[in-house]
Write a protein that binds this DNA or RNA. Structure first.
Lengths: 221, 221
DNA sequence: ATAAGTATGTTGCAAAAACAACAAAAAGGA
DNA sequence: TCCTTTTTGTTGTTTTTGCAACATACTTAT
């Protein structure tokens, strides 16, 4: 039996009344499935009709290159979605694998049904579509943001564009960032020690200063 | 007066009948505006209510860092959208500038209205929502794809993951890519000469071969 | 307070990349 | 055809990076 309390934590169901969630799980054919660790949930090449919601545990989105070398693209956990971009794309064909990283419970819903106004014309459709568009838009933004950083040729430029973003966002030359050094290096796809070296170099050149997660950028004189 | 023939070329209106396009331009408050070269269409910080469609000319999406250094993030032309991710995000605040790259004609539409079932219940809403979700999903995919390449530490790994993708996509170890060397280097954010050197190195190591846009990947023996 | 664990900074070195400048080949136009 | 332009490959040099290993601070739990 699907737990309604849990569904309320899933962003795509934001703003949907509890009573509507009941009709929703019927209307969207929601079903819960448990997977054992290392089980494949989707394979690359599968046609995807449903989106998955991780209720318990975690899944890895993985890719495999021509020579069979595997990479973990991302980790999905706590009430997050996977498969939505494939199930809504033209082909519907997944390019990646989805694997249970540990024993994991998944709720599947038939996302394409939210587009069809069903016979009982459940009022949650409108809310869910708005949520979906918002989720996809905002993810688009964060991805574009990240590409902006990664596209810079040097560690220094990557760092400055990343830090500039937070300065602009917080409207101050002095601000906090949400990542520690390890996470920051990983996010920017650079070597942590090289990053540390470059940060200190810029501090010596009086371009910026920092302590822990707090940074300050200096204007040119 | 807005040209219906032109709207039919815009992807978000795919599958909408010509007669519906007429009611649509009313329902969504479509309006056409001309901009002179170098005019700002949106500024970073603006709240975005409408999406723009480039009908004629081109616009540059630009970013400016803390020190005022500008970068062109992307170029939008021929019947493509801009502003949709901001207008549908939570805040609605643009983080980027949009500037007319030359004399340019834009059609603006109030995208959020497609969510509201209007009083005359125009039947195109459903189609447009489906198109929008598809556009956003597929863009998400291409962005994630690109981040996958950019995240690799070396030029060689960037190239191999990029080429692997096309091998997989075309289901053959021998395939064409859609970019020439310059474009490929730009897309992967690497130096063209370094890329060329690395490609030739891999050819010498019998990992792959190429001629123009045609590549072949070799299995390990 | 101590010990273990984590986060951050430091450094040497070898490998790789960026940059710049040029060579060669291919494509396109007059 | 010849000339120009574009594309691709080549190479030398300098700078930057990744990697590895270690030092130092800071946290956290006991």
């Amino acid at each position: 039996m699907i737990n309604i309390k849990i569904l309320k934590k899933v962003r795509v169901f934001n703003g949907i009344e509890e009573e509507d969630l009941y009709s929703m799980i019927k209307c969207l054919n929601a079903r819960e499935v448990s997977y054992q660790k290392n089980t494949y949930i989707f394979h690359a090449g599968d046609k995807i009709f449903e989106v998955g919601i991780v209720i318990n545990g975690a899944v890895h989105i993985t890719d495999e290159d021509f020579w069979g070398k595997k990479t973990i693209i991302s980790v999905i956990e706590n009430y997050s979605l996977f498969g939505e971009v494939y199930s809504m794309s033209e082909s519907g064909i997944s390019l990646v694998n989805v694997v249970a990283a540990c024993d994991t419970d998944i709720i599947f819903i038939d996302i394409n049904k939210i587009l069809k106004l069903c016979s009982n014309s459940c009022k949650f459709h409108y809310t869910m579509i708005k949520n979906l568009l918002r989720i996809l838009s905002e993810r688009n933004l964060t991805l574009i943001q990240k590409i902006g950083y990664l596209s810079k040729p040097t560690t220094r430029e990557k760092l400055l564009s990343y830090l500039s973003f937070y300065a602009k966002k917080q409207g101050k030359s002095s601000f906090d960032i949400p990542l520690n050094r390890n996470q920051m290096a990983e996010y920017l796809s650079i070597d942590r020690s090289a990053m540390s070296r470059e940060l200190c170099r810029m501090r010596d050149e009086k371009i910026l200063s920092f302590e822990k997660n707090h940074f300050e950028l200096y204007d040119k004189i």
